[in-house]
Write a protein that binds this DNA or RNA. Structure first.
Length: 417
DNA sequence: TGACGTCAAGATCCG
DNA sequence: CGGATCTTGACGTCA
């Protein structure tokens, strides 16, 4: 059982992907972007290994225009050493990765050109996982596509096109229910015709349920049967509704209570859970640390990252968590994250913000230049009189932290959450 | 024709 | 000039 997150890591220095617009793309530029992105990927993989995260989705943006203009660039040969090194790290850590072509990859389109591009896109994704040297347990997640007024026909067309895919692609392909068109029943029907494993997405199911209602657990059990030997553990997507956005929109963070309730209903099922949530690795670590004992050290590392963003909201919670972690013979993960969530529910008060800002400034006050100090002072004054946003004040500190390479601050959540 | 989702690039505005 | 903030881009379907 692994819990993971998708595509990008928050507050992980050097993990950012780069891209360019189509009109600025040329072979040289793309190649340098690819080199950069591959190194960013390695940074994320290293971070995952270090933090015990064993499930991760690689961003489709790894190779910009990977299925169109970059398809002619032999990046996998130029960078074969890097790819296989990263792949080795993934395998050695027992990490499982995946990729997920988005809503615009439509294999069942009624437009042949769109189908062609979908095939090229799948080939591209397969090429990345292949370059990493990963076996078919590392999956490619796909949606069925469009309905075009006739679901049965649309599924039929998907199956026809599916049968013509490269075997390597077929070996990795898994299908997911979507939040507007093909519900989990539709996907299971398509799956049964050609034996494609099915990824159950709980929020998509809530937004777009099957005709006959069943519990998450029952659907997960049904989908479990579609995962065969060689496919690896059954995989599901888990997310929570964002209360301020449209139905089906992912939440900012995973609420522990709700997640644990879901998780415990799975009881002893050995499945991989991909979280789809805005704060990515932050929620993944929270969930991982709460479902198994990762050692008090893991909690201490988390506390080091949360520290100033908790202080910014609630000095009381800050004090409680500190006290909680003093006994090194315990593993108070649940209590710690409950206090963290409580602090994040606390409305932000200017006094607490300034207190946290001053703590962070403490890292630089002896080495900052005159200009940096006066800029900081000026912004702080303006913030106090409501003439500057908290964001600009924190961005100012973030810049200084980058300049002086304050890893402790750069790896913390303060500048990001 | 706009909305949908996603992220970073690009453009523009501000002091 | 640097930094903050808005807009665009790239993808395809559907209302």
């Amino acid at each position: 059982m692994s819990i993971g997150y998708a595509c990008l890591a928050v507050a992980v220095n050097g993990s950012e992907m780069k891209s360019c617009t189509l009109k600025n793309a040329n072979e040289e530029r793309l190649m340098s972007l690819i080199e950069h992105n591959l190194s960013a990927l390695e940074t994320v993989i290293d971070y995952n290994v270090l933090n015990g995260i064993k499930l991760f989705r690689i961003s489709s943006d790894l190779i910009p225009f990977g299925s169109s203009i970059a398809a002619d660039i032999p990046w996998h040969e130029h960078l074969s050493g890097e790819f296989s090194r990263i792949g080795q790290k993934i395998m050695k850590a027992g990490m499982r990765v995946s990729m997920h072509p988005g809503q615009y990859t439509v294999l069942n389109s009624i437009n042949n050109a769109v189908v062609e591009r979908a095939i090229e896109d799948l080939d591209y994704h397969e090429k990345v996982l292949d370059a990493l040297g990963l076996d078919p347990e590392h999956k490619l997640v796909l949606h069925l596509g469009g309905v075009y007024g006739n679901k049965a026909q649309a599924i039929k067309r998907f199956l026809v096109h599916y049968r013509h895919l490269e075997p390597a692609v077929k070996n990795r392909l898994v299908l997911e229910n979507d939040d507007t068109m093909f519900n989990i029943d539709n996907v299971l029907e398509a799956s049964s015709a050609v034996d494609i494993p099915v990824v159950y997405d709980n929020l998509h199911n809530a937004a777009n349920p099957a005709d006959h209602a069943m519990s998450d657990l029952d659907w997960i059990n049904l989908c479990g049967a579609t995962w065969k030997r060689g496919d690896g553990l059954q995989k599901i997507h888990y997310s929570q509704q964002n209360p301020t956005k449209r139905t089906g929109a992912h939440s900012e963070t995973i609420e522990l209570e709700t997640f644990l309730d879901f998780y415990h209903r799975l009881s002893a099922m050995d499945i991989d859970i991909m979280l789809e949530v805005k704060d990515k690795n932050i929620s993944a670590l929270k969930c991982i640390n709460c479902v198994s004992n990762q050692g008090i050290g893991a909690l201490e590392r988390e506390w080091a990252r949360y520290k100033y963003s908790i202080l910014e909201r609630s000095p009381a919670e800050y004090g409680r968590i500190r006290t909680l972690l003093t006994d090194k013979n315990t593993y108070p993960a649940l209590e710690m994250y409950r206090l963290v969530e409580e602090a994040y529910r606390t409305p932000i008060h200017r006094g607490n913000v300034v207190n946290a800002v001053q703590h962070v400034w403490g890292y630089f006050k002896n080495k900052a230049t005159k200009t940096e100090k006066s800029r900081f002072d000026r912004l702080l004054t303006k913030y106090l009189s409501d003439d500057a946003s908290l964001t600009s004040l924190k961005n100012c500190l973030h810049r200084i932290a980058r300049k002086y390479k304050e890893e402790h601050l750069l790896n913390g959540y303060y500048f990001y959450k």
